[in-house]
């Protein structure tokens, strides 16, 4: 109970000035402005490259890695899966606009019929179940490969997430925002503590990446994982690092967080799948 009170208190203290009045448009302006001021030599589109946008030393290594990208096999696997018909003869292409090519930019969006945020991964699994197939596991493996292929065909488009004039959509956005600024876990840290307040600072030997542009490059191949993972896998990893119990992949909490954070990356190019440490 004490913990719960503490968390509520933390949310109200931290969230109040940010959560209450501002519209998503105002939030975006302030959020982007903060990072443009903090890193005045980094052009907006460069924030798609995470920590490599602000650190020349690690950027060199990263560029070397990108010459033979570790996610390439996953893109190929994803393409093959994408084009392999289900038992009913249909393919993933039947479920998406434009046959599923270059449509990662449609996600996440607020689905007014379902009353929740739809993500690319949730749309992939919805496509499977609609066609009589079992859903895939959420965080890695085939779903990450499919997502990687779809992200790859979307490269070069600009992130342009819309928050429709529907109170439920705004609520989902606000929930994601609150989540981003709320302290959690035994270490009592919010996402923003590291990736807003201390972006560009070092936590031990690691440079903290700026939150601006964070959602451009998923799914991501992390050297630490040795394979590809979805953004919800990454969220869970962050939660664990502050010793908080992670939410489930595709839980409302993570869907809303993805909604908020992707909106905050509006104006930055989609460049997934990415490679990170």
């Amino acid at each position: 109970m004490k913990k719960l009170l503490l968390i509520t208190a933390a949310i109200s203290v931290l969230g109040a000035p940010l959560v209450s009045q501002a519209s998503p448009e105002d939030d975006l302006k302030a959020f982007r402005g903060y990072f443009m001021e903090r890193f005045p030599n980094v052009p907006l589109e460069e924030f798609a490259n995470g920590v490599y946008a602000i650190d020349p030393a690690s950027r060199e290594q990263w560029e070397a890695i990108e010459e033979f990208p570790p996610y390439e096999i996953a893109i190929d696997e994803g393409e093959e899966l994408f084009n392999t018909p289900f038992k009913n003869g249909k393919t993933y292409a039947s479920c998406f606009r434009n046959g599923g090519i270059g449509v990662k930019s449609d996600y996440p969006y607020y689905d007014t019929e379902k009353g929740q945020v739809e993500t690319l991964e949730s749309a992939i699994n919805a496509c499977r179940t609609k066609n009589g197939e079992k859903p895939l596991k959420w965080k890695q493996g085939k779903i990450a490969s499919l997502s990687a292929y779809m992200a790859y065909t979307t490269r070069g488009q600009t992130i342009d997430i819309k928050i429709p004039h529907d109170q439920r959509a705004v609520d989902a956005y606000e929930d994601g925002k609150r989540s981003y600024y709320a302290r959690r876990g035994q270490l009592n840290m919010s996402c923003a503590h590291c990736h807003v307040d201390n972006s560009g600072n070092k936590i031990r030997a690691d440079l903290l990446s700026p939150a601006l542009g964070h959602l451009s490059h998923f799914p991501v191949y992390r050297s630490k994982w040795g394979n590809l993972g979805t953004v919800h896998r990454r969220f869970a990893g962050c939660n664990k690092q502050v010793r908080a119990l992670p939410f489930k992949a595709q839980s409302p909490q993570y869907r809303n967080l993805e909604y908020f954070l992707t909106y905050m990356s509006n104006g930055i190019p989609w460049n997934g799948p990415g490679a990170r440490k």
Partner: peptide, 18 residues
């Protein structure tokens, strides 16, 4: 540390029994 610096990133080592 949040008592003296409400917005600090510093974990509460005693209060949270770290």
């Amino acid at each position: 540390a949040t008592v003296s610096s409400p917005n600090t990133i510093m974990p509460p080592f005693g209060k949270h029994k770290i």
